[in-house]
């Protein structure tokens, strides 16, 4: 093999590595999502829960569930839980609502993003119905009560006495308009 061909071969291989690493950078995005879903890291909760087993209600146990709401920067809506905290029994289904009102002058679209603390409890917080599964579009001045239905998994580690579910409300009017949001 001459020097020339071995040079070209090495060069080509290295450009291959470069391309591979560029793709790898993008592959980190789905990998990260999978990682967070599996471990519940980041307090991320899953999508709509479909019961895979019938839970037995644990009558002995009381867990406090707190609700928090935040507005992301520049999000003018009024947004709050109708109840701030509930005493719940693992295995039983509960309903509550969140109140939102568009006090801006224009029609806006919003998306609520949930997060559960402590993180390792996130995977035991099942939502069978949640306003966070869809976008909310409100005309100026419109108000809405948004439903949440959840069950706490009885497998929730005994050390967890209090769960906090927090929602941050994002203004996604622009993203929704370009139709790119999921």
């Amino acid at each position: 093999m001459t020097i020339q061909t071995s040079k070209s071969k090495t060069t080509l291989k290295l450009f291959g590595v470069v391309l591979g690493m560029f793709v790898f950078g993008f592959a980190l995005v789905p990998l990260y999502d999978i990682y967070c879903q599996v471990t519940g890291a980041n307090g991320k909760t899953g999508g709509a829960y479909v019961a895979s087993e019938a839970f037995e209600v644990d009558e002995e146990r009381q867990v406090t569930v707190q609700f928090l709401t935040n507005n992301n920067a520049n999000m003018p809506w009024e947004f709050r839980p109708t109840v701030r905290s509930m005493q719940v029994k693992p295995g039983q289904m509960y309903d509550t609502t969140f109140f939102a009102s568009n006090i801006a002058r224009t029609t806006m679209t919003a998306q609520a993003i949930p997060s559960v603390a402590p993180f390792h409890a996130a995977e035991y917080f099942h939502k069978t119905e949640c306003f966070c599964f869809e976008q909310q579009q409100l005309a100026s001045g419109e108000v809405i009560d948004m439903p949440l239905r959840f069950i706490i998994d009885p497998h929730l580690p005994a050390s967890v006495k209090t769960l906090t579910l927090s929602y941050t409300l994002f203004d996604i009017t622009d993203i929704a308009a370009t139709g790119a949001a999921e």
């Binding site: 994002f170 996604i172 622009d174 999921e182």
Partner: peptide, 17 residues
């Protein structure tokens, strides 16, 4: 510029990513 949401939590992305 193109309306994706890799890092925008409101669109399903994540700033920690």
């Amino acid at each position: 510029h193109f309306g994706t949401a890799f890092f925008n939590a409101g669109g399903g992305g994540d700033p920690v990513l």
